[in-house]
């Protein structure tokens, strides 16, 4: 579904991604792990068209998207939940959801989708009219996910969804990721929390300094001694 090949990109003159190659098959969860500064967020931002690709290709359902403007990429069905949630804090919860459906003007099913989001994330229902900035970190993460789902993505890009959350909330978020995937939405997950990320993944990639290091199924990577040492904190 998503094919990234020989991707180079970065900020200003600084090259962050140096020939990255990633494949995300339809219906799967693919996790991407790597240390700080490995280029995980840059990859997602390049896929979303926020950071321009310098070289290489990004194909989504066979279509080249590496030169498409960001708003067109969303319209193709590639939607991102960015790192740090980035919800619209001065807008209400409901307005955030409405903006998630921005690419579907006058779609009569928006209302139904909103109800589905409230069923999936019941915490949001009680806070429909609250300013999003007043939600707790975990609630904001749920809102960010719900907002992205309102766009009816085919591929959901998740950047560090567990960042800064309490262990119990992390558990909830990962259950929700699995639930979303079961609805048929393909997921590319970027995480610092390698245990969790690989535990949930059908396939995983380890990247370092903008290059591929190791790849394999979630289970393979979890039992790989090198990964155990570097990312899972075991010696």
């Amino acid at each position: 579904m998503l094919e990234v090949a020989n991707l180079h990109s970065g900020y200003g003159k600084i090259e962050i991604l140096k020939g990255l190659k990633i494949r995300v098959p339809e219906g799967k969860i693919v996790s991407l792990i790597g240390s700080n500064g490995a280029g995980k967020t840059t990859l997602l931002m390049t896929i979303s068209g926020i950071v321009p690709a310098w070289k290489g290709s990004i194909k989504f359902s066979g279509k080249a998207i590496e030169t498409m403007p960001a708003d067109q990429i969303v319209r193709q069905g590639v939607v991102q939940v960015p790192e740090g949630r980035r919800i619209f804090s001065r807008l209400t919860v409901e307005e955030n959801l409405d903006l998630g459906a921005y690419t579907r003007p006058r779609d009569p099913e928006i209302k139904r989708d909103k109800e589905e989001m409230f069923a999936l994330f019941p915490i949001l229902y009680a806070r429909t009219k609250s300013l999003a900035g007043n939600l707790s970190g975990g609630e904001q993460q749920m809102l960010a996910m719900a907002r992205a789902l309102m766009a009816r993505p085919k591929l959901l890009l998740l950047d560090e969804p567990s960042l800064g959350l309490a262990p119990k909330m992390i558990e909830t978020i990962f259950q929700l990721i699995r639930k979303v995937n079961q609805k048929g939405i393909t997921i590319l997950l970027v995480e610092q929390n390698a245990w969790k990320a690989l535990g949930i993944a059908d396939y995983g990639y380890v990247i370092e300094s903008g290059k591929n290091q190791i790849e394999g199924t979630g289970q393979e990577l979890l039992s790989n001694p090198q990964i155990k040492h570097s990312y899972l904190g075991e010696s």
Binding site: I50, R86, S89, L99
Partner: peptide
């Protein structure tokens, strides 16, 4: 006005 990049990610031109 709130977050330009996040707005882009929602498909806003």
């Amino acid at each position: 006005a709130d977050d330009r990049e996040a707005a882009c990610l929602m498909g806003i031109n």
